[in-house]
Design a protein around this nucleic acid. Sequence first.
DNA 1: GTGAAAGCGCTAACAG
DNA 2: CTGTTAGCGCTTTCAC
Lengths: 329, 329
Amino acid sequence: MAKSFVTSIDVAERAGVSRSAVSRTFTAGASVSPDVRQRVLKAAQELGYRVNRLAQTLNTSSSNLVGVVGANLSSPFIAKQLDMLSLGLLRRGQQCLLLNAADARSDIAPLIELIFEFRARAIVVLSGEPPASIVDECLANGVKLIVINRLMTRPDTDVILSDDILGARLAAERLLAARCRKVAVVCSGSLTPTQVRRATTFSDVVREHGGAVVRWSEGPTAYETGVAAAHALLADEQIDGAFCVTDLMALGFLDAARHDLQRSVPDDLSVIGFDDIPQSAWKAYDLTTVGQSFSVLTDAVLAALDHDDGEVSTQMVPVTLIERGTVHK
Amino acid sequence: MAKSFVTSIDVAERAGVSRSAVSRTFTAGASVSPDVRQRVLKAAQELGYRVNRLAQTLNTSSSNLVGVVGANLSSPFIAKQLDMLSLGLLRRGQQCLLLNAADARSDIAPLIELIFEFRARAIVVLSGEPPASIVDECLANGVKLIVINRLMTRPDTDVILSDDILGARLAAERLLAARCRKVAVVCSGSLTPTQVRRATTFSDVVREHGGAVVRWSEGPTAYETGVAAAHALLADEQIDGAFCVTDLMALGFLDAARHDLQRSVPDDLSVIGFDDIPQSAWKAYDLTTVGQSFSVLTDAVLAALDHDDGEVSTQMVPVTLIERGTVHK
DNA sequence: GTGAAAGCGCTAACAG
DNA sequence: CTGTTAGCGCTTTCAC
């Protein structure tokens, strides 16, 4: 029982060729005679040889490792993104080094530095915003940096944004069309740029049309926060509509409104969410929401990964209003 | 703008010391004078030096990379496991190489081989079962293999199992106590060992006590499968209880029963799930279920990771019946 | 097409 | 405590 892996030199000996020949056999588009190739492959097979990516990366200095950092990996929205992203990366022959940022407010800089140490070729930030120093470091070392849903204030980073402005506008217009007069807008306490954009746009539109707006922003971005918001806000019986900037919070809001506060949705109260997570389509909720396509989002990330040199892009992920059953007709 | 990373030799030059000194500075428990240490640290800081883990691993031949393979990363149960596991690994200074297995039936062998190439020290399999050849390879190369919820037929692998037998028994007894006479047991089409164990144990216990059992096993392990099962099974009005071997399916079953088929739960029909995913506690469901503690499960994995040499263990994750509102009193 | 040799960035023995 | 010297396993010129 060997404790260490088989090396190319073992294979070379067994096949009666040089190490170079082995290397060439496992390098796409190298020139090896079919004969040698077969012998090497056979020996490798018998010995259980696996190329050592570490050594390989060391002198080609181009790993196919992509660092992914995110928080709340088990929240439906992030989990879905991670699922699709990791699958996409795998399909493209890239590996995913996953760093869990514990919670949304934790500093992601140390995690990104860890990624540097593995010489990843790119970094995808699903949640949180990398500090300027990190961005500089990526730039200096030729590491692609892709940030999702954070409006970076610098033009040298790839940014993927959901169309929050349009989404919030659609939500506002839909609630106005349902004749809501006093609406709640629910954010979490971690006022991310995305949440702020959604909330303020929504509020502006509603006010423009003469509606009243009450705002909540406390707690984590979670189901429970929606519950808490409903309890606090719906004491005011005049509120007849709510826009939760996240589906997860919308589901909590909805549940509390219906089950704790005996509000009838959508007759009595209309609710709209944002994101279109899988649970929103479940029959118990049937939540009307602003949807962003996960596959478009993932494709945007993968596309940004491709822009191998220099060029930086800002991509907007389109949104649509998904009419379901939580808004009065 | 440098395209490549700063190396230890750059730092050494700037600090006016040898490469070894630099290496020692970044190695825990090495002997460097405070003076040299400071100079190195300063130079490293100014240059933006990061140890190259690849090179480091190459000659210490002990990476702190742990490969994680799983399918359905966005399903609540797996997502939660992955969340906690990646966090735990990070806390212990280990990195997580994530491989997404596309779907539950896909062959995970190629993914594990990929992990080998990165010389990970351990592999955690969240879903799917590695073929024997892979197990041998792990053994031969000193790679720790940890498998969750698959009863491996070989004694040389670390296995973490939820206590399916007890869980199924608890579910059966609870349903019998609720005076159910004819019960449905819902599995997915991917009859994993875990699902089979839960279903057969449950059926046995119910039958022992004179109850009738109808079984469903089709489709993926998903919400929609629960919906489909309810539609198919509840045509039989005599069915007054259901055990879904997975919470996710239980939620679909529950929704379809209530919203499509106008069954009143728990008056008319009692439902029990298994896993205790976060959504089961949501007010719209309030699902009675057999819970396994995610933190116990994660701790078991991390503990198994620690057993660095040789010893292999089978750990059983305890389960408890979580009484909520979907079973008749 | 093939082998010899140099080197990727680092650590670990070994002298001093 | 420090620098010098070998490698870790691989790829890649460069001659042949």
